[in-house]
Design a protein around this nucleic acid. Structure first.
Length: 114
DNA sequence: GTTCTGACTGCGA
DNA sequence: GTCGCAGCCAGAA
């Protein structure tokens, strides 16, 4: 079934939507929660294909906790702007106070979700 | 069918 | 902290 690809994207989008405001997640972490471990690139692709204005894509960062866009780029400024609007401290393209997928397991989905 | 590219990740220098 | 290399999967040409 080709709907499989759609199911994957839906799971990824669902995982991203599960990220609460003021919190961030890594591509690999999102992919993992979406049931697609190692498909971090797929998450990036889905985000590029996504057209949902309510999708908190700005809460998705790299494994380093940095914005995936190059500093100065439109997406970079947009993501940083949205993050700060949620109370997330963004400095030089990186998130302060926490690292993507650092303690997410306990903060985001919690110990009872595993 | 092959080939290229990508909002990625991890390791080593 | 920064740079380079290899691995990985999926979509588009």
């Amino acid at each position: 079934m080709d709907g499989e690809s759609e199911a994957r994207s839906r799971r990824i989008l669902d995982a991203i939507r599960a990220i609460p405001s003021g919190q961030v997640a890594g591509y690999g972490e999102v992919a993992r929660r979406a049931g697609l471990p190692g498909r971090a690139r797929l998450v990036a692709r889905v985000l590029g294909q996504n057209d949902d204005p309510e999708l908190p894509w700005h809460r998705v960062l790299r494994s380093d906790g940095r914005i995936a866009f190059p500093q100065g780029s439109a997406g970079y400024r947009e993501q940083g702007r949205r993050l700060r609007a949620e109370g997330v401290r963004v400095v030089k393209g990186r998130v302060q106070g926490q690292k993507a997928a650092a303690s997410l397991d306990e903060q985001l989905w919690g110990p009872g979700a595993g």
